[in-house]
Amino acid sequence: MKRAQQSQNQELTVRRSTRLTDKFQKLSDELTTKIFSKLEDDPKTLIRCSTVSKKWASFVFKKTAHLSFIFSCTPEKNRSFPNSKLHSHISSSAIPAIMNAFSNLESIEIKLCRCPSRTPQPPCCQNITKMNVVWTGDDSQADTCLGFDVGLLSTIQGTKLSHALSEGKKLANPPKFFCNGLLLDNDRPPPENIEKGCDYEC
């Protein structure tokens, strides 16, 4: 017991921040990736994590099996609605780089944000009738699904488009995908209150 007390005393002299660092380095790789698995619906934070270190980059990009995006209709090219406090919006221009980086995805889920209108008064996505997702593998085992008709979205209630790549199985050799285009047919002009962003939980 005396020895334990001495070691406690020694530990007290070590600065807290240094100790915290030590503790984190003891978090095993397995435990770190478990934290990342909680970020599957937040690709934005995940990608930031990938910039933390080389090791983290490989965890994030190679071990992430599922991703969930919240997608807003893009009123202008390369632009998405401002993010809300609750979630990030992903613009279609960001998709190809995401699909290139996450090399072991088994499934993705795309949710349409009903921003900025909670109720269709007027619904910003009223005229979206179809979403096309085109996946193309980079070898002969191309996995392609075309023309995902998600139906009329005028009463958007958490509309989800989910497509498990290769029916949930990992594609071999190399399981890399890119997105040729994710198109939202939207004839409406951008909503006027776009700058306010979206505060709704999609």
């Binding site: 698995s37 934070t45 270190s53 080389k54 983290w56």
Partner: peptide
């Protein structure tokens, strides 16, 4: 795990580094 994920959500890369005490090797 969820609590840690929530605490790093939308934070800067530098914040996440210091949170986890990780050195940048890029």
């Amino acid at each position: 795990n969820q609590a840690v994920a929530d605490r790093i959500q939308n934070r800067s890369v530098e914040y996440v580094r210091s949170f986890f005490g990780i050195d940048n090797d890029f």
